[in-house]
Write a protein that binds this DNA or RNA. Sequence first.
DNA 1: GATTCCACTGCCAGGCCGGGCAGAATCTAA
DNA 2: TTAGATTCTGCCCGGCCTGGCAGTGGAATC
Lengths: 214, 214
Amino acid sequence: MPITVAIVEDNPNLRLGASYILRASPDCKVVGEYESAEDFLDELEAVNPDVVLMDIGLPGMSGIAATAQIKNRSPRAQVIMLSVFDDDENVFQAICAGACGYITKPVMPEQLLEAIEQAHQGASPMSPNIARKVLELFKKHMPPPQVDYNLSERELEVLDLLTQGADHKQIAEKLFLSPFTVRAHLRKIYDKLHVHSKSQAVAKALKERLLPRK
Amino acid sequence: MPITVAIVEDNPNLRLGASYILRASPDCKVVGEYESAEDFLDELEAVNPDVVLMDIGLPGMSGIAATAQIKNRSPRAQVIMLSVFDDDENVFQAICAGACGYITKPVMPEQLLEAIEQAHQGASPMSPNIARKVLELFKKHMPPPQVDYNLSERELEVLDLLTQGADHKQIAEKLFLSPFTVRAHLRKIYDKLHVHSKSQAVAKALKERLLPRK
DNA sequence: GATTCCACTGCCAGGCCGGGCAGAATCTAA
DNA sequence: TTAGATTCTGCCCGGCCTGGCAGTGGAATC
């Protein structure tokens, strides 16, 4: 059974080119070609494609906004972004919108077919330069704890509950401790983190990811 | 000028295989083959390769720990992870350690050469299934604001300062407001976020990324 | 012109919080 | 066995914070 593919691309040459490539493959079946996100979204449920090739720089609604809608209304559709843009912001937005792949133009024919197959199999086709962007974004937003504040197990537990919005009394109840003890732990935490309030401690803990991942 | 490559892999067959492939290419120059991370780290500065092919499942020090050290001591080296493991934890750790690429075994010869070239050019070679993992990790850890709490501009400003650990008075000074006004904003924020303290507000703001990225 | 939303200022009461101080039990490493 | 780290409990005080209540003024919408 061939993979059903929809193409959303405003440039007629690129759209026809992609269509031509896909129609030459027995594994793919082009079920729609659109020159705007709006046109495609009108027929999304009726067409229900396995894979969508989505341009980012569309007139009217952008490919990123369209992707968000697609993933909302038809989550099984795998959206591959095709774009000349490879800046951080577009890549970031595309990922958050739910794109499963991101390929920079120009695209080679066999590269396109490969990407569609991978996307359909649950993998993520991605140009290597985009992959690098993603890794950098990842590291930028997920800085692992760089400084070791030397917090003890117990202190981490308390800090964790703090970030869940608990106050002294609630922490004491959850850890079966006296509120006095909780205050003692908090004080040591404040010392070690060089902060002076719950909110500062929470901010530092979350921003610097001091808590083991859950 | 050929790309200098070091290979760290405990399985002799795989190590020799990779070495054989690379030596057959005029673009690469194998400058070291090691069966353990420790052996390689001893010669890191002396060898100073452009690219390192690093196995993850090594005896002794793991490839991930080794990668962290490499990026510390010789940041220009591009490390490509080669691994049979593709679980979230290994991928996550590898990225945080500073790996620029991640390829799952088995590796095809031309795939290997391509990956080395891409890594050397500043891109990130990555198997599509790994790319998918990375995207999922990304989305998991970076959930974009899902609920709109309808905070006003001013309220976001105040919230932002809160996450920087400021108290009422400091916020008032920075925004040139009366402390009373700040309290009014805070109250509206608490209302809208359904929280009852600074620390809860900070936790919610950071966890749900209510603040526009900076 | 009325309504609504936002930003802004103000007071009060009660409770929560942070810092200083004191003491004790457990465990581990020197 | 002594020293240190960790965990635990306790009290006091001053100050900060939260929630309730009251009111002004500007801008946009209707």
